[in-house]
């Protein structure tokens, strides 16, 4: 019996190594090619870091740094808006209006089924109003980016709230005289930090890679800037250094997320044991 298992285990392992190697090559080759090209010097085959230095200095057209700045600012603003909007809602629904759980969940997941390319058609008239009434700045994109981030943020927050005994915590806090604001932001949120952090990481990664809506609403964020650089000078090294940097940044965000998720899992296991 154990012989059978050992043999199967060996076969599965051999299969796994082959699969990981083949897929690893398929996924890594384009990325490595991009990085290799970004490190190419002025003559073919040489190595240089100049393309990476150009991320800060590339004057365009269009200037790269402003695209980077806009996108980073958008990431921060979008994170804050998503949290301000979703955290109280998710907790409130859990505490007081459980019958709305399905509705809120459905609304949050809806952006997954309405393609961005469809949404942008309907957004065009709305953004015409925003441009006329409020501001021309590309930062206004946060309104719709928060919607795009809803599915990811909702799932992260809902998972974060799963292990929290919301009812007991809120009753305890209320009985000590806390208002609902204190209950939500100072009692429950600290218990779901990991969920909040996950939501922020995913939202940040999303904003970093967004192109469709910005491009079609005629705003210039990082991806749109890269798009125009590629139209003008398709072989600019800076194109590939910046693209690699953005992808690596998103990858690091999600890798952090995977470790944070584990820390939380362990914590809840511990608390189960102690009970």
């Amino acid at each position: 019996m154990t012989g059978l298992h050992a043999r199967r285990r060996r076969r599965v392992n051999a299969f796994r190594y082959v699969v990981f190697t083949v897929f690893g090559l398929f996924f890594l080759l384009p990325l490595l090619a991009m990085i290799r090209f970004s490190l190419e010097g002025s003559t073919g085959g040489s190595w240089s870091l100049s393309s990476w230095g150009q991320i800060a200095s590339y004057a365009g057209p269009p200037p790269l740094l402003s695209g980077v700045e806009i996108t980073l600012e958008l990431a921060v603003i979008t994170c804050l808006v998503v949290l301000a909007l979703l955290v109280p809602t998710v907790i409130w629904v859990r505490l007081r209006v459980r019958w709305m759980t399905r509705l809120v969940e459905a609304l949050c997941l809806l952006p997954l089924t309405i393609p961005a390319i469809v949404l942008v058609v309907g957004l065009a008239p709305i953004y015409r109003v925003i441009r006329q009434q409020f501001s021309l700045s590309a930062l206004q994109l946060f309104w719709v980016y928060a919607v795009l981030a809803l599915p990811y943020a909702y799932r992260a927050l809902a998972a974060g709230l799963e292990g929290v005994d919301v009812k007991t915590l809120s009753e305890a806090a209320r009985s000590l005289g806390a208002g609902w604001f204190t209950v939500i932001w100072r009692v429950i949120v600290p218990n779901m930090r990991q969920g909040v952090l996950n939501a922020m990481l995913l939202t940040g990664a999303l904003v970093l890679g967004e192109f469709t809506i910005a491009y079609l609403l005629l705003y210039t964020n990082l991806q749109v800037t890269l798009f125009y650089v590629s139209r003008g000078t398709p072989n600019a090294g800076v194109l590939f250094s910046t693209s690699s940097a953005a992808l690596l940044f998103a990858f690091v965000l999600l890798l952090i997320l995977s470790y944070v998720g584990r820390a939380r899992g362990r914590q809840s296991e511990r608390s189960k044991v102690s009970k």
Binding site: F20, F27, P30, A33, M34, G209, F211, L226, S243, Y259
Partner: peptide, 27 residues
């Protein structure tokens, strides 16, 4: 390995955007 593949999958599946076209162009 699982961690790397999952984080990598998240990036490439959801946040790749225009970058993927550039990567293949240069490859």
């Amino acid at each position: 390995i699982r961690r790397l593949y999952l984080a990598g999958s998240g990036v490439l599946a959801q946040f790749g955007g225009v970058t993927l076209a550039f990567a293949f162009l240069i490859t």
